[in-house]
Structures are given as C-alpha cells and as structure tokens.
C-alpha cells in the first residue's frame, strides 16, 4: 500500500494526535473494532513493542494543587507498531485489553498518514468521540438534576 505524507510534530499535529489517542483510550476494544468494520481496511503492521500490560503510578497533589504524591497504580496496556517504513503508532490505554491497545496503536500510525487520516477520522474517531461526549453529557445532566436550588426553597417559604 502506498503511504502518504506522515504528519510531523508541529503544535497542531500534536493537538490532533493527542485528541485521537485520548478518544481511542476511552473507547472499549469492542467499540473500536465495530467502527473499524465501517472503515477501509488498515494497512499491515509490525509489532515493535507489546502489547504489554503494566502499571502507571497515578499521582495527585497535596491539597489538590500542591506538591505531587503517589495515589496508587492503574493498570495500563501499551503497544507500539510500525506501519510501512515511516509511521510508528503508539498506544497507552488504561486497563488490560491487549487487542484494544494494538488496534489503537495501528490507528495512531494510520492517522498520522495524511492520506488515510480523513477517512479514519470520519469512520472511527468522530463517532467514538460523539458517543463519549454524549455519555459525559448524560452524566452531567444527571448531576445537574441533583443540584440543590436554595433560592427555590426560599420562595416556597
């Protein structure tokens, strides 16, 4: 397969890449696989590292905004793949789903290819992002429904 131009490391490229990596990390392996069935087949890849399960130490800050401290670990699966000769894709995703990490790494590599990117954004990333935003919005609406309205109580008196 012909490979298109690979994106670089400009601020814009990093913003775009951070976004799709975050979207893929939040999606389940089954969701990603389901979206991929709607997309053009991915080019073949080679595994450079992983997928392997490990831990990341999650940190907090004392008082919420002071010096960092170690809160506890979180299971993470990572994978690095090569696509053709130029693009290297990485994935670090919470949890222990090796298949998901590999799919996310392949997608990260493919999305760096300017030729492949628009189709994959449309078929995979945007639908996943929309579903995630809707889930978050639904939680926010439930939280808003439990917000105490003290002024209403004052009127009732």
């Amino acid at each position: 397969m012909d490979m298109g131009e690979i994106i670089g490391t400009t601020a814009e490229d990093v913003v775009a890449r951070r976004r799709w990596m975050g979207v893929l990390a939040r999606a389940s392996g089954a969701e990603i696989a389901a979206r991929l069935r709607e997309a053009a087949p991915l080019p073949p890849h080679t595994r450079l590292r992983g997928p392997e399960i490990g831990l990341v130490m999650a940190r907090g800050r004392q008082g919420g905004d002071g010096a960092p401290f170690n809160l506890g670990e979180i299971t993470v699966t990572r994978c690095t793949v090569g696509l053709g000769s130029a693009a290297v894709g990485h994935a670090y995703v919470a949890g222990r789903d090796a298949r998901k990490a590999e799919l996310a790494a392949v997608l990260d590599a493919a999305l760096q290819d300017r030729a492949l990117r628009p189709g994959l954004l449309d078929a995979v990333i945007e639908p996943l992002a929309t579903a995630q935003a809707e889930r978050a919005a639904r939680t926010a609406r439930k939280a808003a429904a439990t917000r105490v309205d003290f002024s209403t109580l004052a009127v009732m008196r």
Binding site: G54, M57, A58, R59, R61, L71, E73, V76
Partner: peptide
C-alpha cells in the same frame, strides 16, 4: 507487572463532578 512510569498529577480542579 512492570511499572511504565508515573502519571501527571491528576487535575481534580477539572473533575467532571457527579457529586
């Protein structure tokens, strides 16, 4: 399990609050 590293400190100020 191997340790891959540490996270950036969680930004609890940006929490999507449920409560």
């Amino acid at each position: 399990l191997p340790r891959f590293g540490a996270s950036l400190p969680l930004d609890t100020g940006a929490m999507r609050v449920r409560r």
